[in-house]
């Protein structure tokens, strides 16, 4: 269970034993409060899509050199052995945001929901670890730009508020799109926080491997655990240079690259390699990058973990569009969270 964020719980909805604030709770609280905007409080339905659907500026695709730790340069290896089921659980999180209202000055009032879960596999069936997911619902606003009576209303109604400006001064105003970007980043960080928390708890209490959707280098203690395996599906940053790019793009199904180390200032160093799950025409089709704790790396472990990931190719995660890189267990996590999130 996620920490009850900032006093949440006084108002909420019930979903599989999880109590959290819903959009309706927020709107109800606002309608009962003074200082309503002209026309009353209402759910913004025009021109305010979910932030996840907004075409936000993203970093351009890039290559980044990485330090080989298996051989002198990036090359490929053929996995001779058959795929092997080795994961005992799957960890993933979701996030969703809705613009509730634009306050005067184009300040967005955003409701964000994030959730994370570990789905444990027992007898080939997936069950929620510890019985419930971690869930967090908050209102994301730049507090410096939000009228004080609104903040008091949220406080009185027990609705947790997250300051997207993180305490920074904004007395001169801010560009509305920047405020949206800040909110989106805040929601994303909240999701990462929940996922990290879950991964750390799993690794602290279980001695079995968990398949983590995405990298683990930012997963705190889990990044050093032999039980966490991160599987990255998107490759805007390709850890290769020169001939290494060709090695990656020419990988065939069941082949992996040699491993390399990913290190950054704010994250934990991890060992990583690319693995092709299925053959296809697109160079990025069915390509995943696997991360394990740097200290646990050996070539044999890389082979074994690769076999584990290959084993998760079935059942297919269809109809998800990312089915070629997504494990069914991760698709199950997402489906579960979307079913219970308010």
């Amino acid at each position: 269970m996620a920490p009850a964020a900032d006093g949440a719980g006084a108002v909420g909805v019930t979903a599989v034993g999880v109590t959290a604030v819903g959009v309706a709770d927020v709107l109800r609280a606002l309608r009962a409060a003074p200082g309503a905007p002209e026309g009353g409080w209402r759910l913004e339905t025009t021109g305010a899509p979910s932030l996840e659907r907004m075409a936000l500026e993203m970093e351009p695709p890039r290559l980044e050199a990485a330090l080989p730790i298996e051989g002198e340069a990036l090359s490929y290896r053929v996995l001779d052995a058959e795929p092997l089921a080795g994961f005992h659980a799957f960890l993933d999180g979701i996030q969703s945001t809705r613009v509730l209202q634009y306050l005067p000055g184009g300040v967005p009032l955003i409701f964000g929901t994030v959730a994370a879960v570990v789905r444990e596999r027992r007898d080939r069936e997936l069950h929620t670890w510890n019985g419930e997911p971690d869930l967090s619902t908050r209102v994301y606003v730049p507090t410096a730009l939000t009228p004080a009576e609104h903040l008091r209303t949220f406080d009185a109604a027990g609705i947790p508020v997250h300051d997207t400006l993180d305490g920074a001064d904004a007395s001169d105003g801010q560009h509305p799109q920047l405020l949206l970007t800040l909110a989106r980043t805040a929601v994303q960080r909240e999701r990462e926080r929940l996922e990290t928390s879950l991964a750390e708890r799993w690794c602290a209490t279980r001695d079995q491997s968990v398949y983590v959707d995405g990298g683990i280098s930012g997963a705190g203690l889990a990044a050093r655990s032999p039980h966490a395996v991160g599987v990255v599906k998107s490759h805007r940053t390709l850890y290769a240079s020169g001939d290494g790019v060709g090695v990656i793009t020419r990988l065939r199904a069941g082949q992996r690259t040699t491993a390399f180390e990913i290190r950054s200032a704010r994250r934990t160093a991890v060992a990583s390699w690319y693995l092709r799950l299925r053959d296809g025409g697109d160079p990025m089709f069915a390509l995943v990058r696997i991360e394990v704790a740097r200290d646990t790396f050996t070539a044999e472990r890389a082979d074994e973990v690769s076999r584990w990931v290959l084993a998760e190719r079935t059942p297919l995660a269809l109809p998800d569009q990312r089915w070629h890189t997504m494990a069914y267990g991760i698709a199950d996590c997402e489906r579960y969270l979307r079913a219970i999130a308010p």
Partner: peptide
């Protein structure tokens, strides 16, 4: 597609 057209391989999936 998930079982490459081989019905007998369904039991090999680690997850039902």
């Amino acid at each position: 597609l998930g079982h490459d057209g081989q019905p007998g391989s369904a039991h090999q999936s680690p997850t039902r």
